[in-house]
């Protein structure tokens, strides 16, 4: 059972290959696989400009961080990006401890993350 995470996926206006993914709940070892499948599917379909809204992501552990780094790497390999916005302090601390803050593109809010996508086009 992986009941603790929900991903809400929507289009990004004026960003043809973009998607906004709202992460809600806890990302951990019990649900990384289903998260991986959903996000990988998007990337495979050509949506390589991804903004992940973490406003309602309460929790992430090392396994969850592992797949976030994987998404970032996969999107970059396809000339895209995986940007993260609205990270709460607790989650940011974990990202920082493992040094992922230098590997992930982190923004204060979704608007800034989307604006950075538009400037790259």
């Amino acid at each position: 059972m992986d009941t603790q995470i929900e991903l809400q996926i929507s289009d990004l206006d004026n960003v043809p290959h973009g998607k906004l993914i709202k992460f809600m709940g806890d990302l951990d070892a019990t649900n990384v696989e289903s998260t991986l499948d959903q996000v990988t599917k998007l990337i495979k379909e050509g949506f390589v400009l991804i903004v992940a809204d973490f406003r309602n992501l309460r929790y992430v552990n090392s396994t969850g961080l592992g797949i976030l780094l994987h998404f970032s790497k996969t999107a970059k390999e396809k000339s895209g990006c995986f940007k993260i916005a609205n990270v709460n302090d607790n989650v940011y601390e974990i990202i920082e401890i493992i040094g992922a803050n230098t590997l992930l593109d982190i923004y204060d809010n979704v608007e800034e993350a989307i604006a950075s996508l538009q400037t790259r086009r």
Partner: peptide, 13 residues
């Protein structure tokens, strides 16, 4: 992860 992705693409899941 990579193999899993490949198998899912082939409908193995």
């Amino acid at each position: 992860y990579d193999l899993r992705e490949r198998l899912i693409q082939m409908g193995a899941d």
